[in-house]
Write a protein that binds this DNA or RNA. Sequence first.
DNA 1: GACTGTTGTTACCGTAAGTAACAGCAGTGC
DNA 2: GCACTGCTGTTACTTACGGTAACAACAGTC
Lengths: 219, 219
Amino acid sequence: MGTTQQTDQHRSAHQRRRQLLEAADRVVLRDGPKASMNAIAAEAGITKPILYRHFGDKGGLYRALAKRHTDALLSALKAALDAPADRRARVEATLDTYLAAIEARPQVYRFLMHPADNTATADAQLPEQGFDVGRHSAPLLRRLGEELAVVIEERVDLGPDSAQLARVWGHGIVGMMHAAGDWWLGERPCSRAQLVSSLADLLWGRLALVDDRAGSPGL
Amino acid sequence: MGTTQQTDQHRSAHQRRRQLLEAADRVVLRDGPKASMNAIAAEAGITKPILYRHFGDKGGLYRALAKRHTDALLSALKAALDAPADRRARVEATLDTYLAAIEARPQVYRFLMHPADNTATADAQLPEQGFDVGRHSAPLLRRLGEELAVVIEERVDLGPDSAQLARVWGHGIVGMMHAAGDWWLGERPCSRAQLVSSLADLLWGRLALVDDRAGSPGL
DNA sequence: GACTGTTGTTACCGTAAGTAACAGCAGTGC
DNA sequence: GCACTGCTGTTACTTACGGTAACAACAGTC
């Protein structure tokens, strides 16, 4: 075997890589986070060592896959964030874009969000490794948080310490979106629009404004 | 071997279980998320099958361990949430309590937060299992989110749909805290107090209040 | 026609989860 | 005393998966 789909065999390694990633995508879409290298290789019509030649290890494949999806998601989010509307509408559009994405492909979402582990032999105190890839965990949320921080800092005037505040907010907002989305995806307690509105209310400081409950200790 | 620490051998199975969990705790504290069942058994002075008799599978041990830590963390958070101070101070105290906890024991934190996987063979559509433990993913963040939702709904008057809004906010706030904490723990870009203050500002709606940056498109 | 590089294979290793199957020993009823 | 039950513990195994070595086939090139 191996001579079946070899009709056009001299496409570039880059094309081959994309093809493998698409197969991996399909398997992940079907099997969720349990997708094994064997299963992915089988889906691509090849065997494991080829995957390893292309991606080094499972983390490499994971990162390549994550980059694809993160790039796609991120450009969608940026578009929502840059839409011609006021800030509240933009925030809601961004939240909705994210939630629509995870709703559309929950399996991919779960695979990307729960990487299981990566390089971390023991000490956890090694200063740097030289590579930027595979450094620490940082699979998708980290990147989203950083990118959102950039957008926030570009667009909003946060005064002194703006860079740092923007990063905290970026990661915090992404985490809020993620956790609420993860819960919502599992339980579906309300419509997407309601969730978006509730989260935007939270970001708009409604927690600080509402009254204490009648019977609660008067603080 | 095996006759060494058998001085008082007829303590209840519950005591034994606690002892095993403490050993597991120690290993997790040392090895992080890579802690193997063999290593845990060795730390407890026994071998694997005993762990499996007590906890069923690795997921069972994980859940038991998670419950311990979640209970402890949750009671600390509830205490902070119930302190005699205004809402902002209480929120800051709660954030700080959480961050101090993950700062104090990052290995345990990482083990609990990155469960890698659990029961999820394929369909993801099985109705119920009979047990309440091991249902779906919901390791720690879910529970924190639900508990925070309860506290929010008890203490704050959110009007109609208050139950649902409280749950969204509970999960959202926990997610914000988690993501920001995870990032902060990895990079340590600022002091804990600064992080707490920035997150509280975010929850207080400062995002809605600040001005657009000078050069940005006028929306 | 030999040389090299790519694509593919089979067959293997190491590790870790999970599982028999068996051994020792406490208590209980006869 | 003696079988029976039940708990704690063991060794040794199976299975599955990540990762690797060694080899086979073939395209293009000098």
